[in-house]
Design a protein around this nucleic acid. Structure first.
Lengths: 178, 178
DNA sequence: TATGAATTATTCATTGACGAAATCATCGGC
DNA sequence: GCCGATGATTTCGTCAATGAATAATTCATA
């Protein structure tokens, strides 16, 4: 499939043996045999589907992430949470505005530092987060339907080794700040 | 970490046993133990890094994909290639404009149907694609640096089983049309 | 305690991407 | 030759992201 690309156009300085081999692998098998390609396509599709799953709840994936973070760090300042999720301040405003408008969380004035707004879940926010969390668990189970428990663990372990090459901060989704 | 979220807020109707177990898994281990979360974070990070790798060549990932597709289907109409990559017509125009402006491909009139524009790589386009392809291969090797050949194959196989749950068209990146 | 620098949240203007619909040229059937 | 269909392009409205300015408050320190 890609053979033609490479075979017709590999430039005159001949590549190293290992390079040639790796290239040939991709040549003969197409993008489906690239870990980078596969993981990024699947990752995008997973995120898209999760977005569809969350849509009926009126949540976007990143709002879910924000809500979840507020839940586990109850009372932190807007700034601190933005820092943690790598969301710039001016965008935090809009996100929190939206969630507050839907009655899911609230800004509270901190008496000791009246510049900051401490974020707290409302009862409704907690309930919605629970429902969304249940959806996420169901989604996870669906994704892994064709894997045994051991295979799932193994997949996670292999993915972690790929992740280690990318220097990803644990627990924070890389897409949330962009 | 997430324990508090669920333990404080799981609503009174108690969930099923299997639900409880799956939920507890995510609770106790955090998002890092979710295949969905992990694969989408890594996928995003991989795509972002690939973008950085391609940037010095003046290419974006989706332009790389477009160029590659033109290379393997040389002479196809703009419409056909857009269909294949699920890129709507009005966006194809802009993409092809940009690549044509950089002298990487050219529109040719088809004498038998003068509505269509057949896309062809230029010499420069072919050379740049080769260089980009070499970068992609190097990127792939870097990502898999901590995997043996067998582990890499196994990772791909496990990912394919996840992909099968998503109904992904083979060989086309799911992000390209959005 | 007064002053200025730093911090937090917010607003505003700009930019750019995206998609939908209108437009233009051309083809094929009748 | 006419008309609907098709491919390519243009135009335009919408929306999100970005970064710079603004306002309120705190902190350091003289």
């Amino acid at each position: 499939m890609i053979v033609r690309v490479m075979s017709t156009s590999v430039p005159t300085p001949e590549p190293s043996e290992s390079h040639r081999k790796a290239t040939q692998t991709l040549e003969s098998t197409g993008p489906a045999h690239s870990v980078g390609f596969t993981v990024s396509t699947i990752g995008h599709a997973v995120a898209a589907r999760f977005g569809e799953i969350l849509a009926p709840l009126g949540l976007e994936p990143r709002e879910f992430a924000l809500l979840r973070t507020v839940a586990v760090t109850e009372g932190q300042s807007q700034h601190a949470i933005g820092e943690r999720l790598r969301i710039p301040p001016s965008r935090m405003v809009a996100f929190v505005d939206a969630l507050e408008a839907h009655g899911l969380l609230e800004r509270r004035h901190d008496p000791s530092d009246r510049r900051t707004r401490a974020l707290h879940l409302t009862e409704g926010g907690r309930e919605l987060l629970d429902r969304a969390f249940a959806e996420a668990v169901a989604h996870e189970r669906d994704l892994c339907a064709e894997l045994s428990a051991e295979e799932r663990e193994q997949l996670l372990e292999l993915l972690q080794r790929v992740a280690s090459r990318l220097g990803l901060p644990p627990g924070v989704h890389s897409a949330i700040g962009q």
